[in-house]
Design a binder for these strands. Structure first.
Ligand SMILES: [Zn+2]
Ligand SMILES: [Zn+2]
Ligand SMILES: [Zn+2]
Ligand SMILES: [Zn+2]
Lengths: 163, 163
DNA sequence: TTAAAAAAGTTATAATATAACATAATCAGT
DNA sequence: ACTGATTATGTTATATTATAACTTTTTTAA
């Protein structure tokens, strides 16, 4: 069974998460946008792990004030806000969402997704983008957004569950 | 309004399509798998243009023998077969399917998708793959599949509808 | 204080995809 | 050709993901 340990083998995810949440609060303050309790809660849920999380999983784990179960638009609107602020990325190949590691600057998301443990590692590799931009430019194609999602097996799972 | 002309400005899509279908028939024969009338029809529908096509759009355009409307599994199973044979690619960011330009060799799909005309241009750029593989290797990540989908504006639409 | 704007609640439904089981067509060995 | 196994398709129901449309609440700003 894959370990539930988040992400790189030895990494204190509590710190990882609190940094991300603190950073998000700071950025929203700077930008004059409101990281409301609901949005913060959704962001916290997304940051509970490094595994992309589906909207309906988030919904199930959402604690509303009155104990009533929230409806889908509640979650999708919060996700839309977080996406717009670059605080999360959407993983198209999984219909899921994951916290962004570098929300301060807009950038394209590049992910290595382990099929075994489910963790997604966000890359920040300009070479990949450059390579794509170069090829696009030759064809006169103007790039607006990029979906780069690589599936496979992470080093961690490769080592433990060689198959 | 975007032109409905398929793909690069001047290109005879009838030839483009019949080559793809002929090639598909040949490959299936070689491989000993059956390109049944249903599967062929789905492939034809996908090849009608260079715009990724949704499963339910295919379903609407499917002509069944008895004139009865086919059910979703019919289309999804045909699509699964075509995907398995590498005759089409799935575009995750659009939940849609498109004919493959190089079905003879397994390869990762790389697409430039025009947001204006909807056409998707399949790239065959080893540099992009190499770049990704290199980065993955450094991290000990073993790549199994790649989703590379670049959205923007194609040269054709860039020239005609400069915004 | 109060009108406008933004956020969240609510209900219904759209769009995409699959599970499970029944029937039909094809194939391989006789 | 016959027959059982395999593959493909039909059929029904349902799961999963996402959005439309409208209402109420909260926040902002004059
Ligand atoms: Zn972490
Ligand atoms: Zn990011
Ligand atoms: Zn063509
Ligand atoms: Zn291809």
């Amino acid at each position: 069974m894959p370990s539930d340990a988040p992400f790189p083998d030895e990494h204190n995810h509590a710190i990882c998460m609190s940094q991300a949440l603190g950073n998000a609060a700071k950025l929203c303050l700077q930008r004059g946008v409101r990281l409301t309790p609901l949005r913060l809660q959704v962001l916290e849920l997304v940051w509970r792990s490094h595994k992309p999380l589906g909207a309906y999983t988030i919904l199930e784990n959402l604690q509303t004030a009155q104990g009533r179960r929230a409806a889908p638009p509640t979650v999708y609107r919060a996700l839309d806000f977080l996406l717009a602020q670059g605080l999360i990325h959407r993983i198209a190949s999984l219909n899921a969402f994951i916290g962004c590691l570098h929300p301060e600057a807009t950038h394209v998301g590049q992910f290595l997704i382990c099929e075994h443990c489910g963790n997604a590692i966000e890359l920040d590799t300009p070479e990949i983008t450059n390579c794509i931009m170069q090829r696009a430019e030759i064809l006169g194609f103007v790039v607006k957004s990029q979906t780069i999602e690589i599936s496979g097996r992470c080093a961690h799972c490769q080592a433990r569950y060689a198959s």
